[in-house]
Design a protein around this nucleic acid. Sequence first.
DNA 1: CTCGTTGCAAAGGATTTGCACAAGT
DNA 2: ACTTGTGCAAATCCTTTGCAACGAG
Lengths: 156, 156
Amino acid sequence: MTDHAHEPATPPALAAQLKARGLRLTTQRQRVLAAVGALEHGTPEEISSWLKEQAGPGGAAPDTSTVYRNLELLEKLGLVWHTHLGKGAPVYHAAEHPHLHVVCATCGRIDSVDPRLMDGVAERLGADLGFTLDVGHVALSGTCRDCRDAEAPEES
Amino acid sequence: MTDHAHEPATPPALAAQLKARGLRLTTQRQRVLAAVGALEHGTPEEISSWLKEQAGPGGAAPDTSTVYRNLELLEKLGLVWHTHLGKGAPVYHAAEHPHLHVVCATCGRIDSVDPRLMDGVAERLGADLGFTLDVGHVALSGTCRDCRDAEAPEES
DNA sequence: CTCGTTGCAAAGGATTTGCACAAGT
DNA sequence: ACTTGTGCAAATCCTTTGCAACGAG
């Protein structure tokens, strides 16, 4: 039960997708995918440093460029998705937990919402435009209750 | 009726917002705002080069850094909004024509949709989370009909 | 006049790319 | 063995900043 004590279990989906395309299952790919899952909403940079922490002083972590390359690959494989939440960097999240991102443009707070909220919209877009909505990519921005209260003190 | 033949008419909103904050109405600000409106979906870089074209060989166009600074300002004033449509740079659009962006992740095509499509969702978020949805900021991504057909030839 | 603004140029940060070597199948 | 993937470093791309000169109110 301990082939490689520290390696994350490889999701069947990863191995399958890679094999299907004649690509290779590398330690780095497994780690990047694991990092995306662990961080929930991580930027490439955060993912990269998280991996370095995990590796520890002596351990080896994937190079930053490898992280970028694999993030792009994993997205192509449909295993992760990215969204732009603010100005800076995009955040990646695992595709296995479909959820809608609701981001406060003021404080940056992120809430996850049941994707079903968009079911009606998705149907409508499909019917009207033949457009297939990708709920995992959607980020809804606006102002959260706290920031709204703070910004509009004139209101009552 | 021809104060300055080539200058865009200054939207009352711009002058008003600026005055209210003790800021100044400059030619550059008017031009940047006009460019955002004219380009519909322009990146800062595109806006900048469009302005240079408009200015012609001899004319003066705002510096790139000025474009960035004013884009940020105009957004703060609520006159323009930006959205991230793909990887690279964000696109800006005028706030006067509220519309939802529907972007094909594959071909990059952008469609604009009536924001009312999201009314139900907005209400729901307001009621459940006290979240005020900013429809102008929303970008819905997915796959358009053409790309869908092209990518899934096995279907049917 | 007095400050907000601009232009220029240089600084910065985030991503990407070329290549020789290492690794998966 | 054959080919894909990785690390490293240099190259790019996008944006931001410092500062002296300029211009709107």
